[in-house]
Amino acid sequence: MEMTKQHDHDHDHGHEELEQLKILGFWIFVVTDCILFGTLFATYAVMIHSYAGGPTPKELFELPGIVASTFILLTSSFTSGLAVLAMNKKKVNEMIGWLAVTGLLGLAFVGLEIHEFSNLAHEGATIATSGYWSAFFTLVGTHGLHVSIGLFWMVALIIQLKRRGITTVTHRKITNFSLYWHFLDIVWIFLFTVVYLMGVM
């Protein structure tokens, strides 16, 4: 009996440390993702005037839609923060609720982006139109892809939370997820500024 108790204690202690490792690993992954986006931003900067006689962003960007999706994404970052607060208060249902809201907002964001892309294509700007539009669609699209992958991940996490509640493992997973989600939000702020605001200036 004494043996098993001791054993269990080691077990928990070992897990706690492993989860800490995974959080550090995820931070480093976010660093690599920063470089990834940095490279895309740099490419966008190189391509910023390469219209090749085609349409320019000034002609095609519709800022109201973009402002709306910006607010949607910022709000989703806030609600994912509320989910983490609920997690710290050990309220699993409240937490799942906030995650669901975050997911719906994320979904709306992706929907708006698809809508925007199809509008642009309709107006004659596709990835093959010019260097500028290649860079635009790749940069914005990579961000959208990240958000979509995040949604897929979130569904998996909500199911796990329902089944297992808040444990050291799900706690770590949600911590990493919210880190990822905030990171995408920060990238979007740069995107909004560099691509959209400067694009219509």
Partner: peptide
């Protein structure tokens, strides 16, 4: 996809 990052035409830039 026919993008123009590094092509000679369409505003691409091979040196990039």
């Amino acid at each position: 996809a026919g993008a123009h990052f590094f092509t000679i035409d369409g505003g691409g830039n091979p040196m990039n």
